[in-house]
């Protein structure tokens, strides 16, 4: 049983690593198709985390809707319209700065999680919506930060979408 639990923990860490790697890869990649491949890896990681948490139904629909359909559409729109981002110079300093800013923004979430640890035996059982809502209200700062994060991502996406169109079809 203990080995099963350890396996579950390893799977969770691997999925989270896939999410992180996919996220960074999608931003850093130079070509639209590589970005899409990273995006797929990230979404598979998210689906896997959801499944390990016990939300199998949401995980499967995440794959169907976000990867099967959204990424396919995104792929074809970006590739055929050719609105690629100008290849930027590789600046590790900027990337590090961005990562640190993101870490600072999300730090309160981490502190809250460390203060209220969930035993890993509860993995795979899922949390009811009511309990999830109570957790969110308990840590209102976390909720605000999540909203800010989503807003930042949205603004960034708009900024990228307004970028000058590249040569058609790369």
């Amino acid at each position: 049983m203990a080995s099963g639990q350890a396996l579950l923990d390893v799977a969770l860490v691997a999925s989270l690593a896939a999410v992180a790697a996919g996220g960074v890869g999608a931003v850093v990649a130079r070509k639209a198709v590589h970005m899409i491949a990273w995006l797929v890896i990230m979404s598979l990681g998210v689906a896997s985390v959801l499944a390990l948490m016990g939300y199998g139904y949401i995980a499967v629909f995440h794959v169907v809707v976000y990867i099967g359909t959204s990424v396919t559409l995104l792929a074809i729109v970006v590739m055929l319209v050719g609105c690629s981002v100008e290849p930027r110079a590789w600046r590790p300093g900027r990337l590090l700065l961005a990562l640190m800013a993101a870490a600072a923004l999300e730090a309160p979430l981490l502190f809250y999680a460390l203060e209220n640890p969930v035993p890993s035996t509860r993995l795979g059982t899922g949390v009811s919506l009511g309990e999830a809502a109570r957790q969110l209200l308990d840590c209102w700062l976390c909720t605000v930060l999540m909203v800010i994060t989503v807003a930042t991502v949205l603004i960034e996406a708009l900024a990228i979408a307004r970028g000058s169109p590249g040569p058609a079809g790369e």
Partner: peptide
């Protein structure tokens, strides 16, 4: 055997078009 096997099998199949798009691009 899973209570979601129908939709899981479909989800796996729905990943294939992305790879076909990558083939076409590559």
């Amino acid at each position: 055997r899973s209570s979601l096997s129908l939709i899981a099998a479909y989800a796996i199949l729905s990943l294939v078009p992305i790879l076909v798009i990558i083939m076409g691009w590559a």
